[in-house]
Design a protein around this nucleic acid. Structure first.
Lengths: 168, 168
DNA sequence: ATTAATTTTCATTTTTTTTTGAAAGTTTAA
DNA sequence: TTAAACTTTCAAAAAAAAATGAAAATTAAT
């Protein structure tokens, strides 16, 4: 396969994967494009490569910066801004985990804590089932939370290697 | 908080979480409703509780069955079908992991394998960056894959307890 | 200070996803 | 076998999400 074709396929596949995980397809595609670019790209280049509008490119790049996956660069003598993507996969995985933890896990745990305090008759099956389910999900969520904390604190990439032996 | 209010909040929160992770909001809500129901429910009951159409309820319940999260039950003397949700959170997490692995991880690894075989000039920065990025993502994907395999093979819930000590 | 280059915003349009509901299909009991 | 009960399908409608593009805002060079 030729590089040009492979690039398109990678961008497409990354976009599809993103959309399956609740991430805007275009945002994932811009991310893919930047990850495989040795040099930082301008908004114009992103627009041209992916055939998207200026507004879309701008908002998407801002979002990627918010996710900690892309950084703005300025080149001396150049008026326009350049965008460069983090390329270390462990750092990328980390950033995504951090953001999703902050955006989704923490809020749901807060709600589950509130719901666990529901009042009712201990003999009512509806009450018992509700309480048990909510409590169990809360416990799992807290375990995921703790595991992520420890994982994110770790400086090196624990994923390549060490974790597997726990399950052996 | 009263049970009725808490139920609504739980269903809403579960629906929101689902949609953030690429799962149809209604499907997540039906799942939430069934998880907190001590008894299996009929299509009619699901429709009424969540104010959704028959078609939607039917398709959503079928999807939940495909995910291995809900089972059809038949009661003697009753003509209609009943739907009952798995309630053990570890089993639920497992089923979701299994399905997403099958639906998303395996296909992307296949594509990454193909893309890794791209031909090009080893001195071309565009080629080098592409190859490195794709290869690194492929390695990570394969590690996730292996970890999931081991995790899914484990009979008991490793998550509550043992895993944390790896990171200590 | 002026102005040209560049970035950002956001009301509107387009696309995608989800839902509806009625018709078609299936099942089961009499 | 009939027919009522129930389930499934899917074209069309509705809703939600994403994208556009032009105007407004900002920036920086002269």
């Amino acid at each position: 396969m030729e590089l040009a074709e492979a690039k398109l396929k990678f961008i497409e596949a990354w976009g599809k994967l993103g959309s399956e995980w609740g991430i805007n397809r275009t945002m994932a595609q811009v991310h893919a494009l930047l990850m495989i670019s040795p040099e930082a790209l301008t908004t114009e280049e992103v627009m041209a490569e992916l055939s998207i509008s200026r507004g879309n490119a701008n908002m998407t790049l801002r979002d990627l910066i918010d996710w900690g996956l892309v950084e703005k660069q300025h080149k001396t003598g150049e008026r326009k801004e350049f965008f460069y993507a983090e390329k270390d996969v462990w750092t990328i995985a980390r950033r995504v985990a951090e953001e999703r933890k902050k955006r989704e896990l923490t809020p749901i745990i807060k709600i589950l804590d509130q719901l666990g305090a529901v009042g009712g008759d201990a003999k009512d099956p509806a009450y018992k089932t509700f309480k048990t389910t909510v409590t169990d999900i809360n416990k799992l969520a807290n375990n995921v939370n703790k595991t992520l904390d420890t994982m994110l604190k770790a400086e090196e990439n624990w994923f390549f290697g060490s974790i597997l032996k726990v399950f052996k």
